[in-house]
Computed example of a mutant assay.
Amino acid sequence: MEGMMCMRVSPWLRLFISRSISLVPTILIGVLATSYLDQLDEWLNVLQSLALPFALIPTLKLAQSHVVMTSDFATSKYWRAFGWVTAAAIIALNVYLLLPLVFMLATRGIVSACFAYASFALYLFFVGVLALDNTD
């Protein structure tokens, strides 16, 4: 935050702000939505599985980069292949588990169908761009 916005914030204030942004909504939902916690937990798991490739793919790319990790610490070809095969399996499983949700949303009308299919296509596009980007 300091480098991007040219602002200086004391560490305790930065910690208070970041923890408040992450914890206060969670506590409010836990207290106010006790009858919906199972549904919220299910949606949270879906959202986390959707976000997983956006953390997994850059981590694999950084770990195999000889520029970032130097030749001493970059992963070997064996571990690279293992990582990408595992990531592909996890992403394929997430897409497979996401498809019923997309099809369910598509049955609720033309607007929902357009939104569901467009969102799914955009998600696949961004995951593909992340995986195929070869900037080193």
Rank of each mutant, 00 (worst) to 15 (best):
T75E: 09
I27H: 06
D136M: 07
C114I: 11
V46Q: 04
K77L: 13
L60S: 02
G3A: 15
K61L: 04
W79R: 08
F73W: 13
L98P: 01
W12E: 13
V46H: 07
A55M: 15
L44R: 10
L124Q: 03
A113T: 02
R80H: 12
R108Q: 15
G109E: 04
V102K: 00
R19P: 01
T34G: 08
L56W: 09
L47N: 05
G109K: 01
R108A: 07
V85Q: 00
H66V: 11
R108Y: 09
A89V: 07
N134I: 09
S112C: 13
F120P: 01
Y36L: 15
S10A: 10
V85G: 00
L98W: 04
V67I: 14
I90L: 13
V111F: 09
E2K: 10
G83H: 04
L15V: 09
Y78R: 10
M69S: 07
V9D: 01
V24Y: 08
L15I: 13
V95M: 11
P11H: 05
P11F: 03
L101I: 11
L98M: 09
T135N: 06
Y117K: 00
S112P: 02
Q48A: 14
K61Q: 10
I90G: 03
M104N: 06
L56I: 15
S35D: 14
L13E: 10
Y96V: 09
L99C: 02
F103Y: 07
F16C: 06
I29A: 14
L99R: 05
L56E: 07
S20L: 08
V95K: 02
Y96N: 06
L93T: 11
T70W: 08
P11R: 06
L40C: 05
E42M: 11
V24I: 15
H66P: 01
L101D: 02
V46D: 02
A118V: 05
Y123C: 07
V9A: 03
P58W: 04
T59K: 13
M1S: 12
V111P: 01
A113F: 03
S35N: 11
R8P: 00
A74Q: 04
L40Q: 01
D133K: 06
F82L: 12
S119D: 02
V85Y: 04
V68D: 00
V95L: 12
I17H: 08
A74F: 06
G83E: 06
I21T: 10
L99G: 00
A131I: 05
